[in-house]
């Protein structure tokens, strides 16, 4: 299998007359942290949902982890993790029960689950909270836990949809440490964010405007191309062209 974890070619999604994602083409390399930026309503989440097998593309081609998004979406699901914008752990289950449940439905063995749960809890400094209900945890902890659950089954690729929304700067930094660790262990990270400092942490960044990818390069390359001092400036220059209003 090639070094490309995601290959998208003219991938398009229409809802009636509205083209949410307009023929985007890009590739994501194995082990890289790929930033997927764009204003609200630019089509990031829709694109991510197509790649993770939650949404059927209207046209175009794409393979994820070597599998076709049209025909092999269930095979894709075995090889990816996904953390959605909405918090998606069960609040009325404990930390340990959530881990066990998600690992279990990915088909992980009981011994694997038991061993790895201990490691993950220690990493997150949640060992003392393992048997507390998730709803009693602060938001930042929940987000870190959700991320750890999303990669618990050791996928090849993880999709993160605005994982740090509403999280304080310290926890954000900790969260990115977790992302780096995951990338170092060989998991490709596909992340959307609205924080431009986070965009600087990515290996490569694409910027979506009105359903199309208007720019794709390393943060340094983008700054050079757009003659800007920061990613913030790059983003503003591109996003101002948008005609579509945010939703």
């Amino acid at each position: 299998m090639s070094d490309k974890v995601i290959i998208a070619e003219k991938l398009t999604k229409r809802f009636g007359d509205f083209t949410a994602v307009d023929a985007i083409s890009f590739e994501v390399n194995r082990g890289e942290i790929f930033g997927f930026l764009g204003a609200n309503g630019a089509g990031k989440t829709t694109a991510m949902r197509m790649l993770s097998g939650l949404s059927m593309p209207t046209s175009g081609k794409a393979t994820v982890a070597g599998f076709d998004v049209y025909r092999e979406n269930e095979k894709i699901k075995r090889n990816i993790g996904y953390m959605s914008q909405k918090f998606s752990l069960y609040e009325d289950l404990t930390v340990r029960e959530n881990i066990r449940f998600y690992a279990g439905i990915y088909g992980k063995s009981s011994s694997f689950i038991r061993e790895k749960t201990g490691i993950v809890l220690k990493e997150l400094h949640l060992s003392g909270e393992a048997d507390k209900l998730v709803k009693s945890l602060p938001l930042g902890w929940k987000q870190k836990l959700a991320f750890s659950v999303a990669i618990f089954h050791e996928p090849r690729l993880v999709f993160l949809d605005e994982p740090t929304g509403g999280v304080d700067p310290v926890t954000r930094r900790e969260f990115w440490n977790l992302i780096y660790e995951a990338a170092a262990s060989g998991i490709t990270v596909f992340v959307t964010t609205h924080y431009m400092d986070e965009a600087e942490y990515c290996n490569r960044v694409s910027i979506m405007v009105d359903g199309r990818i208007d720019a794709l390069d390393t943060p340094g390359g983008l700054k050079k191309t757009f003659n800007a001092v920061s990613m913030d400036e790059v983003f503003l220059k591109l996003a101002r062209k948008a005609v579509r209003t945010a939703d």
């Binding site: 097998g53 699901k77 996904y82 959605s84 918090f87 998606s88």
Partner: peptide
Amino acid sequence: EIGTIEQINVTPV
């Protein structure tokens, strides 16, 4: 409503 069904849908269940 709470979005957990999407998390289930993205698993191979």
